[in-house]
Every structure is written in C-alpha cells, then in structure tokens.
Simulated scan of single mutants.
Amino acid sequence: MKGRAAGARLWRALRVLSLVALLVAVVSSVGAAERVSIGHAAMQPRVAPLWVAADRGLFAQEGVEVTIVLINGAPTLLASLTARELQFGYTGGSTVLAAFAGGLPVKMLAAFTNKVSFDFVARPGITRPEELRGKRVGVQSIGGPLWMGAMLGLEYLGLEPVRDKIHIQVVGAQPQLVQALQAGAIDATVVDGIFSRPLKAQGYAILAELPTANIPFVGEGVVALKSTVEQNPQVVERVLRALVRAVAFIQQPGNREAVIQILARRLRIEDPRRAEDGYRDMLQMIERKPYPSLEGLRNVQRLLARQNPKVAALQVEDVVDTRFLRKLDESGFTDGLLGTTGAR
C-alpha cells in the first residue's frame, strides 16, 4: 500500500511539473518577439524612420526584434527578399515596379517620400544642363531610386540619355557618388542636400534643386513579398506601427537633437551642422501618413516602360497594399500620434 501511495504521489508531482513546463512554454511563446530582418540600400536622411524605430526601441515595443541590414543596391536587396534572407525591404517605387513586372510577387506597404528629393550636381566646369551631353552621370544601381531620380532629373533639365549620349554609370550609394565626382570618375550625379551643399561650397554646380520642382515620385518605403504579407499579417502591422510611431517621433520638435544624433551616427557625419541640414531636409520631404503615391508610381512607370515594355502593362494599384496603413488610420492610431506632435 505504501508503495502504491508513493507511486501515486510521484505521478501527481510529475503531472504538475508537466503542466508548469507547458504553461512556461506557452507564456514564453506569447511574449517572444518576432525576429525579422529589414534591408536598405540608401544612405541618406530619409532612412530616418527605419533608424529611429530601431534606435529608440519602437520595434521592440511593438514586439518585433529587428535586424537592419545595409545592402549594396536594389537588385541585391530584391535577391535577398526572394531568398528569404530579408523579410522586408526599405527601397523605392522603381525597384518595386521593375520587380513586379519581372514576376516577383512583391508589395509596397508604405512610402515615406512621394516626390523627387535629390539635387542634380555637376563637376566644376559644367554650369548648364546642355553641357551634360556626352558626359557620365553616376547612380547607385540601374532601376533603383537614385537611378530613377537621375532619369527624372535629366528629363526635367530637357535631356534624354540616349539622344544626348549621356552615359549612366553605376558607382554606389551617395557617399561613393560624392567621392567619384570629386575624383573625376563621373561628371554629374544626384544626391541629397546633405551631400550637395558641401559640394556647392567647393565649386560644384547645382544644376537643379529637384525638391522644389515637386516631381511626383515614390522614394524609400517598406516592401515585402506577397507571401510574407499573407502569412504574417500581425508582423507586418507591428513593423508599420513602429515606423509610423518613428515618423511622429521625428516630427516632434522636442526630439530634434535625438534625431540629429541618430542621423549623425548612422551616416557617420562628424560635422553636427551637416547632420542638422539633413534633419531639416528630411522634415521637408517625409510623409506624415506614408501612403504610396499612385501618381508618383505612374510617373516612375512611364520612364521604366521605355526600357522594359512589361512595366507599361502594369496597374500600379496592384503593386501597393495599403490595408495595414488604412487600419491604423481608421482606428485613430495615426492621427493620435500626429496630434501629439503638433503636425497638421
């Protein structure tokens, strides 16, 4: 009898331990942060929503553990998305349209800039747009946001690469483009104001300040494979919530110094005045509600179609998925955040 009673007590103890272990496992799985990787190729101030969301812990607060990966160009970023090495990309509308036309089921979930934001800069000795004929224009990658900015910039200046024998040369991100321009490896390029102002002070010509031209465009935004969106809608919403919160943080005047410090560190800028310039430029361009501009996508589509006829057949509405942003908007989440910043 004693042996039987002892066995029963042991059995009950084992059952209790099993239940406790199961409960711990369930609680841990509920509380565990989702791990995702987000890639970006641009190195300029408009990546600020991504950096702020990471550095201020906004992703973590939304239950997402994010790794930010710097990618060498839009084609590599798309390849990494396809290989599932990245769950999200932070890139432009031209990248998304070209990928979609090529059969990659990618969706644009948000866009933080909806007009061309670059300055068109030329080396000393070139002071007029027509002097770019037969010259070399540097970009980061063919089909990427900088390339599209250069194409739209040339069009704005009345130039056409084929007709005017302008050579489009792949160099790298904006810091590398500046170095190539200074070294004489290229004759002109498009860069953000944070890079163009020091060049202007050194005697380089600003052929066009494209932000003042209000050219419709879709710059950096959030993209993901359609399968990622369908299989992980909660993760998508958490990522977008964090980024919308980052936009509100950026626009809060009291956070100015914190944002400038993040820009200086991420862009490796030692001169605080340059970081402050980048901050001001970014505030002028960033969308409070980051819906991708259909007009901007159609403008991008128009130029892409000259090189890739498949792009012309696309309906740009099929490329975007704004249901997550609409949900945040309709719930009052976005307006509530913007109301705390004094933003209009």
Rank of each mutant, 00 (worst) to 15 (best):
A33Y: 10
I206Q: 12
A48S: 09
L81V: 01
E317Q: 08
Q307K: 07
D187V: 05
G219D: 09
Y279G: 01
Q140F: 07
T189K: 07
A264V: 09
L199A: 00
A53L: 11
G336N: 14
Q169F: 12
G342C: 08
V191P: 01
A313P: 10
D187S: 13
K115M: 12
A111D: 11
L314H: 02
Q234R: 15
F333D: 08
E270C: 06
F324L: 08
G89E: 11
V190N: 08
T113W: 00
S331Q: 11
L14W: 10
A54T: 07
M43Q: 13
G102A: 14
S80Y: 13
I262S: 04
G278E: 06
N299L: 14
D119C: 15
D164P: 03
A98E: 10
N255L: 00
L19K: 15
V24H: 14
K135R: 14
V26E: 13
P292L: 02
L70C: 09
R197T: 13
E317P: 06
A21W: 05
D318W: 11
G144C: 11
V222N: 04
A6S: 13
G296N: 06
D187P: 08
Q61T: 05
A213R: 14
L17R: 14
I269N: 06
N308I: 11
V47F: 07
L22D: 12
K165L: 15
E317N: 11
M282C: 03
F195A: 10
E295N: 10
P49K: 14
V36W: 06
Q251F: 13
G193D: 08
G143H: 03
G219I: 02
V16Y: 13
S28Q: 13
L77A: 04
N72A: 15
L50W: 04
A42K: 07
D164H: 11
A150T: 12
K135D: 10
L263Q: 00
G57F: 02
V47E: 09
R344W: 15
P124R: 00
D164V: 03
R273Y: 06
N214A: 08
V69G: 06
V311Q: 04
E130L: 08
G332L: 05
L104S: 00
T67G: 11
Q182D: 00
A83S: 15
A111G: 08
L17W: 13
A242R: 07
M282V: 02
V311R: 04
L81Q: 03
T322C: 06
Q307P: 03
S141F: 01
G125L: 09
Q202K: 04
A242M: 00
A101T: 03
G219F: 03
G134R: 10
Q307T: 12
A185I: 11
L157F: 04
R265Y: 05
V259T: 02
L297C: 07
L338H: 01
